[in-house]
Design a protein around this nucleic acid. Sequence first.
DNA 1: TTTGCCACGTGAAACATATCACAAGCACTT
DNA 2: AAGTGCTTGTGATATGTTTCACGTGGCAAA
Lengths: 231, 231
Amino acid sequence: MSPLPRGKAPQMAIRRLSMYYRTLASLREQGVENVSSEHLSELTGSTAAQVRRDLAYFGSFGRRGVGYEVRTLQAHMREILGIGQGWPMALVGVGNLGSALLAYDGFPRQGFRIVEAFDSDPRRVGTVVRDVVVKPMDQLRDTIQARKIAMALVAVPAKAAQGVTQQLIDAGVRCLLNFAPISLKVPPDVYLASVDLSIEVEYLSYLLRESVAVNADSGPELTGLGNTVPG
Amino acid sequence: MSPLPRGKAPQMAIRRLSMYYRTLASLREQGVENVSSEHLSELTGSTAAQVRRDLAYFGSFGRRGVGYEVRTLQAHMREILGIGQGWPMALVGVGNLGSALLAYDGFPRQGFRIVEAFDSDPRRVGTVVRDVVVKPMDQLRDTIQARKIAMALVAVPAKAAQGVTQQLIDAGVRCLLNFAPISLKVPPDVYLASVDLSIEVEYLSYLLRESVAVNADSGPELTGLGNTVPG
DNA sequence: TTTGCCACGTGAAACATATCACAAGCACTT
DNA sequence: AAGTGCTTGTGATATGTTTCACGTGGCAAA
């Protein structure tokens, strides 16, 4: 079916696929049936060539002279990104940020659900947030193993993050999304992505300060986020 | 005051500077006075050469044969990143995520403070979160202009994000940190960074799915997508 | 002063990613 | 059946980033 050994895609290309996927979902809601790389690039802030190249890492999904069929392209994106496998996720740390993550409807909408939550604070243990019962840390290992959870969100204070990470890895978690402002150490076979709010704000601060200092309008900047470290 | 930029640094280099900065702060708390690029790289998950190159974009802050003095290097990072200028920030959208952002102590710790918050929901307007009074949207423009706020956090639903962004830009905001899962359009002189949780999770999902496919060595599997072996 | 070692700073090489530009293929018309 | 117009998919090219490797300056001890 597909010519297998396509080249490996850059990490940023994968992230752009997510955007394409969402945009396709939106187009489909609007009843749009076909889309060109040009059109898709306008909607996602990319370029037409970039869109085509990104897709080409995984196959050829369009028809020359016509464009891409929204429905099938979306299906391919879903397949590639593993959306729809419905990976269950665990959350550690049910503070302000953790609660916000539990309430974030973007996850279920993309097929990801937080099915377990853990916290070390006895006052939070036992509470129910969005249908999820907060469990104590000593149930983390057994619960995650029993439910075969492979992805976890770390939303604990920086000081606790490395320890929690180790517990999760010991329990069998393969993918971590870290929100603590610290650089976590993980073994090579564990995937790690980090969302670091301070870094983002400081990056903007840098741009702002630079533009003020230089005073010359040097560069338009459109940055995506983030930083990922494969083990 | 400003040590002129020597060359333009890659965006990722700036983000790494933030990590160096935090690591330096931590070292200083521990009483460490000097640090080598080697040591710093271990603590941040970078490489020694990378650390030196990143710093070299902005100057030469170390002493050959010795390393860097923690205190002065930290000061330089602070200067470069614009930390300590204490940029005031505005928040739009005081839902779950917005509330978490108001409570996030990483911002004030790095010298950034959310000093104004806005929401379109009348039930939220007037409430006080972390000493900040939530104001209605129609006060956004005047408030931001009066306080000369240049940075704003957008934590509203995707559908409202572009409109809010426009209001902020009209009010004079130069830097935006967007949390809505949508690709915002901004003029070239406005800086934009985005934190997109779905994209991060889907990236991990992609890695996970890929590693599973690779592991299943026999490889027929459902999809027949190209895969490459992780290093 | 000289010796020895150390770690920075940096040109150059290697690598990664993005952009260009066009042949190939499809739909539609004549 | 051939022509026209459009858009993909992809070599080739350009640009950007990371890594390598080593000259340079600096410290300490003899």
